[in-house]
């Protein structure tokens, strides 16, 4: 008998960037999403997807374009679908183009990441009836070890002077771009390290493009929305 293919990653493999970003975007106690700028999570998850493909040696990037290095499947259905999309594009496109494409698939990325985190027994799924009609899903934390570990590592990196390894450079970059870093590390010790954080956040090109996309959108919204009330 063959084992059916499941969309979940191996329970003991390291978390993908998509999973890691979503996990850090959820509040430890309430299981709800932390506040983020408009499209913040959409672009951060899209950036995480590209970062996963880059570290799997499937794509490479420069300021002009994103190129496919290898079309061989990674075994991760989420990555392989994205890789297929990129590989079949008629011409190479920029990182920001692909961020736009995958940001529009936020609900797919978010749902897949939540399912995997539940399968890994890091999160639990809880249905709550709201007004007896709408089911509201919450994802309370079952095992907080992963979050604690990554926060401890990133904290040491921010407060120290070591160079980051590529994974941590990408994480800091994506978390800074989506304004999550300031929510996770919100005290005077980190505020005093804003220059260090800005330097670390620039070390990954995909993260820089994610920041540019989110900031541009915020600027457009500021100028386009009439000031209401007050």
């Amino acid at each position: 008998m063959t084992t059916p293919a499941t969309p979940s990653a191996h329970p003991h493999s390291p978390l993908s960037f998509v999973e890691e970003i979503l996990l850090l975007a959820l509040d430890d106690t309430t299981g709800a999403l932390r506040p983020m700028p408009v499209m913040g999570l959409d672009y951060a998850l899209a950036g995480a997807l590209l970062a996963d493909l880059a570290l799997a040696n499937r794509i490479d990037t420069d300021p002009q374009q994103l190129v496919v290095l290898d079309r061989a499947p990674t075994g991760d259905p989420l990555l392989d679908r994205a890789l297929g999309q990129i590989a079949t594009a008629p011409a190479p496109q920029s990182v920001s183009h692909w961020l736009g494409v995958f940001a529009s698939e936020r609900s797919t990325l978010e749902r897949a990441a939540l399912e995997r985190l539940v399968a890994r027994r890091i999160l639990a799924q809880q249905e709550k009836k709201f007004l007896w009609v709408f089911g509201v899903r919450r994802y309370p934390t079952v095992d907080n070890q992963e979050r604690v570990e990554v926060r401890t590592r990133l904290s040491a990196l921010i407060l120290g002077d070591e160079l980051p390894d590529p994974r941590d450079a990408i994480l800091i970059s994506l978390l800074t771009a989506s304004h999550l870093l300031a929510r996770i590390f919100d005290d005077a010790r980190y505020h005093a390290r804003s220059e260090r954080i800005a330097t670390l956040a620039r070390m990954d090109l995909v993260g820089r493009e994610v920041a540019a996309a989110i900031d541009t959108l915020a600027r457009v919204l500021r100028t386009a929305t009439p000031v209401m009330g007050m």
Partner: peptide, 19 residues
């Protein structure tokens, strides 16, 4: 004449190792 993201990652990793 050209360095991509993966090139910068190797340079960063090498500098970290040398330190």
């Amino acid at each position: 004449d050209y360095v991509t993201s993966s090139g910068f990652r190797v340079l960063l990793q090498a500098e970290k190792e040398q330190r």
